[in-house]
Design a protein around this nucleic acid. Structure first.
Length: 147
DNA sequence: CCTGAGCGG
């Protein structure tokens, strides 16, 4: 439900509640309505928060980098640390065969678009744990990312 | 552990 609707309903509810309080209730109807607005606003605030975060996440421009020729002993943490020398790393996925559990020697690193080129320049064809890394923009296989 | 081109869940 939209936060604004909740705000409105709570406000209306607040003013209607006035009819159930004694006549000598010290607060006026507009004041009560105002309290309803405040309460509704608080509800709307907390309901709106996760939504706002999701929107911000979608607004971050990222690229997924293909990382090939990885050593089988490489773990996600070491790869992430390596790429973080060049910028913000959003996610690291090292692909391994689901049946055998064997590492496949490549993976994907999601980075901020503004940092990705530096990571490609800095890491492609560079040595990483005795292997020569291949780093380039990933071909989008499933969903489309910003470039 | 085993493997060496490769673009995923």
């Amino acid at each position: 439900m939209h936060p604004a609707i909740i705000l409105f309903v709570v406000a209306i509810l607040g003013s209607v509640l006035l009819s159930f309080v004694p006549v000598e209730f010290p607060y006026s109807r507009p004041t009560f309505f105002g309290l309803g607005i405040l309460l509704g606003g608080a509800v709307a605030f907390f309901m709106g928060r996760p939504k706002a975060q999701a929107t911000r996440t979608e607004d971050i421009a990222t690229v997924t980098l293909y990382v090939g020729n990885l050593p089988y002993r490489a773990n996600e943490h070491s790869v992430q640390q390596t790429f973080e020398r060049f910028g913000k790393v959003l996610s690291v996925r090292l692909m391994k065969d689901r049946q055998t559990g064997r590492r496949r020697g490549f993976g994907f690193v999601e980075m901020l678009t503004e940092d990705a080129q530096a990571a490609i320049n800095g890491l492609n064809d560079q040595q990483f744990q005795d292997r020569t890394l291949k780093v380039r923009e990933a071909k989008e296989r499933r969903d489309q990312e910003e470039e």
